[in-house]
Simulated scan of single mutants.
Amino acid sequence: MSRLLALALASTLGPALSFAALSFAAPLHAQGAAAAALPKPEYLTVEQLRAKYRDPASRFMTIKGVEVHYKDEGPRGAPVLLMVHGSVSTLRTWDATTARLKTRYRIIRFDIPGYGLSGRISDEVAANVQPLDITEGLVDALGVKKLTFVGVSSGGTMGMYLAAHRPELVERLILSNTPSDPVKYDHLVMPQSFIDATARTKANNGFQDMDFWNNYLSYFAGDPKRISAKTRAEYYDFNRRVPEKYPIALVARIGDGKQATIEMAKVKAPTLLLWGNADPLLPEAAANAITRYLGSATISRVLMNDVGHYPPLEVGDRIAQLIAAYVEAGTPKL
């Protein structure tokens, strides 16, 4: 893949996978073709998204000056699972897994501020609030003393930082396709339809239309047929939310990897890697890397060769079964 297209993909994934936000770029002839018939950008406000997508389980809490949308489901006395979404996603990433587990676990999920139904990020919040402040503020306010952290993509990065900072809180980690190094894109081979959709996005001032999200979700899936029309429409809607001034302010970031390496070395919580091995971005080599960095933790691994970058989106029921098996029978006794 060309360097220009790598930069384009980095711009799309950057806010959620915690890489520097880069401008979309594509060959000039592709941009010219894309500009021929551009859809009119139709952004949605937070209020419009809430009117469409909030449900009886939706709750809101103001933490450090930002309104956080969260769900807290399941028996109060049950073991707690804190589930955090990743790339360009929302707490709906965990819908299928939650439905399977919420009768036996207390499951807490939230939209990272700036995404989903959570509030917008002010200048003051961007300057003074760290991503971990939101996670800690939520679980502390809910009275949680022990939890299992379950994260996908950059959501897993948040979990590693929380486990390093609050070892008394995090009993175990369950991570799916989480980066541990600054991510590179030069190995990716994108289909022409995705290249065209990316060029069209650039020509349309960054607006990602429905065709873009169909290409994106299919490309990062092990089996595109598993990604429902409903999920695809939700990704389109939530990612045409009125653009944030600080899109990655409250996303846990790998950055240049230096501080992340220090934090990962502190993690001692038993860790399960549930890895989509058909992920074109973070295949098995990334699972091997995170295993090395978490050198003080006991690591268990399940590599799923038929699954891509977002395992809970593709195989939510399977993920639920694996989570329960690890929590109830597979966690090492240290």
Score class of each variant (00 low, 15 high):
residue 314 E to R: 04
residue 188 L to H: 05
residue 118 S to M: 05
residue 332 P to I: 00
residue 309 H to R: 08
residue 195 I to E: 12
residue 329 A to G: 15
residue 295 G to P: 06
residue 288 N to H: 12
residue 38 L to A: 10
residue 127 A to M: 02
residue 178 T to M: 05
residue 227 I to V: 11
residue 239 N to Y: 06
residue 185 Y to D: 07
residue 104 R to N: 10
residue 211 D to V: 11
residue 212 F to E: 00
residue 73 E to V: 13
residue 187 H to E: 02
residue 159 G to Y: 05
residue 38 L to C: 00
residue 211 D to Q: 14
residue 182 P to E: 00
residue 157 T to M: 01
residue 201 T to Q: 07
residue 158 M to P: 02
residue 258 K to M: 13
residue 179 P to C: 10
residue 138 L to A: 05
residue 282 L to I: 06
residue 243 P to R: 05
residue 332 P to F: 01
residue 14 G to K: 03
residue 313 L to V: 10
residue 140 D to F: 15
residue 134 I to V: 12
residue 62 T to Q: 12
residue 135 T to K: 04
residue 328 E to S: 08
residue 148 T to D: 08
residue 73 E to Y: 08
residue 118 S to L: 07
residue 20 A to D: 12
residue 121 I to K: 02
residue 298 T to D: 11
residue 136 E to Q: 14
residue 234 E to N: 14
residue 197 A to I: 03
residue 191 P to M: 04
residue 104 R to Y: 09
residue 326 Y to N: 09
residue 159 G to N: 01
residue 292 R to K: 12
residue 39 P to I: 06
residue 248 I to F: 15
residue 329 A to W: 15
residue 14 G to E: 04
residue 213 W to I: 04
residue 177 N to M: 02
residue 225 K to F: 03
residue 166 R to D: 11
residue 168 E to M: 08
residue 147 L to Y: 07
residue 148 T to Q: 08
residue 219 Y to W: 10
residue 15 P to D: 01
residue 122 S to D: 07
residue 184 K to H: 14
residue 139 V to N: 00
residue 270 P to A: 00
residue 79 P to E: 04
residue 265 A to P: 05
residue 44 L to N: 08
residue 207 F to Q: 03
residue 153 S to C: 12
residue 153 S to V: 05
residue 222 G to H: 06
residue 23 S to H: 13
residue 225 K to P: 04
residue 136 E to F: 15
residue 10 A to I: 13
residue 72 D to E: 07
residue 173 L to S: 00
residue 5 L to W: 13
residue 305 N to S: 13
residue 325 A to M: 13
residue 41 P to G: 08
residue 21 A to L: 15
residue 34 A to F: 03
residue 56 P to N: 02
residue 224 P to C: 10
residue 261 T to K: 12
residue 142 L to S: 09
residue 327 V to P: 03
residue 175 L to C: 06
residue 50 R to P: 03
residue 23 S to L: 13
residue 173 L to F: 07
residue 324 A to H: 14
residue 258 K to W: 01
residue 227 I to F: 01
residue 146 K to R: 15
residue 144 V to K: 01
residue 115 Y to V: 13
residue 194 F to I: 02
residue 83 M to V: 06
residue 125 V to E: 08
residue 203 A to H: 01
residue 34 A to Y: 09
residue 31 Q to N: 13
residue 285 A to E: 13
residue 64 K to H: 14
residue 67 E to M: 05
residue 43 Y to S: 03
residue 210 M to T: 13
residue 167 P to F: 04
residue 191 P to T: 02
residue 281 L to N: 04
residue 150 V to D: 05
residue 234 E to R: 14
residue 264 M to E: 11
residue 305 N to W: 13
residue 133 D to Y: 06
residue 139 V to F: 02
residue 303 L to P: 02
residue 226 R to M: 11
residue 307 V to T: 11
residue 234 E to A: 15
residue 283 P to W: 10
residue 279 D to H: 09
residue 332 P to Y: 09
residue 44 L to C: 11
residue 107 I to E: 04
residue 190 M to I: 14
residue 223 D to M: 11
residue 85 H to D: 04
residue 214 N to S: 10
residue 260 A to I: 01
residue 330 G to D: 03
